[in-house]
């Protein structure tokens, strides 16, 4: 069974390109435009890895991460803002990794692969 990845980002461009890239890499990908939708999606079906933006309208990525689970999925947080507090919070909330936008796709795919391995 293919690894299931959920992409959560309010930016349509980012969301769509990431879906394409991950599908191209062979993952089964779903997408959500905000935290509420993401929580609903995660409740509906299980995901191995979540790629989630930190800053979003509504509950931010860290809050959403804290509400997921149990058991929580492996969450890779994405951010365009190098705000230290948010990074610390993400790490404290057991995020699998934090990546800065714009990121190297190779590096991101490596992280996703690592998270999927840990999930299985």
């Amino acid at each position: 069974m293919a690894t299931r990845v959920l992409v959560v980002d309010d930016e349509a461009g980012m969301r769509e390109t990431l879906v394409d890239i991950l599908e191209g890499a062979g993952y089964e990908v779903a997408a959500a435009p905000d935290g509420i939708a993401a929580l609903a999606t995660v409740e509906d079906s299980a995901f191995d890895v979540v790629l989630m933006d930190i800053r979003m309208p509504g509950p931010d990525g860290v809050t959403v991460l804290q509400r997921m689970g149990p058991p929580p999925p492996r969450v890779i947080m994405m951010t365009a803002y190098a705000v230290e507090d948010q990074l610390r919070q993400a790490i404290d909330a057991q995020a699998f990794a934090v990546v800065h936008k714009p990121f190297q796709i190779g590096y991101l795919l490596g992280l996703v692969e690592g998270a999927a391995e840990e999930a299985s």
Binding site: M14, T17, I21, A80, I105
Partner: peptide, 9 residues
């Protein structure tokens, strides 16, 4: 950074 991220993707 966001638009750059999208462009990069």
């Amino acid at each position: 950074r966001n638009p750059l991220g999208v462009i990069s993707n």
